[in-house]
């Protein structure tokens, strides 16, 4: 029984890395989603085409393919990336591309009268976006963002294949050392599920908090 404690500790260390990747990946994804989502609606053709290319490129291939490409090819062309950085980049850019479409959909769903009213009040385009449109659109985006964050959490498992010691990697270590398959894999499945629950509960709480005083959610 004693040795299981050590193995469990190994898995918890992995869980910490998984959590780090998830948080940093989500931060990058959120940033990319808002930038690319707004850029896609730009009236300047060059900007909207660039955003469309980014979105279609990253949605067209999986995190796995992008991660391997970043990990193996970028160093060859003179850009050194650590496995951790490659992981955060692949996760954030990939999920950000999905998020961009969510941002676009939500912003476009805001009633035109809001824009017109902001215009009538002489708000600058930035103020209109920042203070009128986005606060309302963000509440609409949240549920889908929650799902995207869970997809990102699940995507982190792939980094174990480029030798990052995340939860999945550590469970393989435990499997190799103990010869037991069921216990390490079941443990991490439950841990992943608990993390996913934390994300979905957190998003739901945030949604309730932010929709106070707005009539966009029924």
């Amino acid at each position: 029984m004693q040795h299981w404690f050590g193995y469990l500790q190994l898995i918890f260390e992995g869980a910490l890395l998984t959590a780090q990747l998830t948080v940093l990946g989500c931060a990058l994804a959120l940033f990319m989603a808002i930038i690319a989502g707004l850029a896609r609606m730009s009236k300047v053709k060059a900007i909207s085409i660039a955003a469309t290319c980014y979105i279609e490129f990253f949605r067209g291939t999986s995190i796995f393919v992008q991660l391997f490409w970043a990990y193996f090819v970028l160093p060859l062309v003179g850009i050194p990336v650590s496995p951790f950085l490659a992981g955060v980049l692949a996760l954030g850019l990939n999920v950000g591309a999905y998020g961009a479409e969510v941002v676009r959909g939500a912003v476009q769903s805001i009633d035109k009268g809001q824009s017109e009213a902001a215009l009538a009040l002489n708000l600058t385009p930035y103020q209109r976006m920042r203070h009128v449109i986005l606060p309302q659109a963000f509440v609409i985006m949240l549920p889908t963002f929650g799902n995207n964050a869970i997809e990102l959490l699940k995507g982190t498992a792939v980094v174990s294949l480029i030798s990052l010691a995340d939860m999945t990697f550590q469970s393989q270590v435990v499997r190799a050392q103990t010869g037991s398959t069921a216990i390490p894999f079941l443990t991490i499945l439950i841990l992943y599920f608990m993390m996913a629950m934390v994300i979905s509960r957190g998003i739901r709480a945030l949604e309730r908090h932010l929709s106070d005083g707005l009539d966009v959610t029924k």
């Binding site: 869970i150 699940k154 792939v158 174990s160 999945t168 398959t181 069921a182």
Partner: peptide, 21 residues
């Protein structure tokens, strides 16, 4: 909900390594 909340990669490992057991 459990399957949707856990990574496909780990599920594949689970099937691949546990079923032979």
């Amino acid at each position: 909900e459990f399957i949707r909340g856990t990574p496909l990669l780990v599920q594949l490992y689970f099937l691949f390594f546990i079923l032979p057991d």
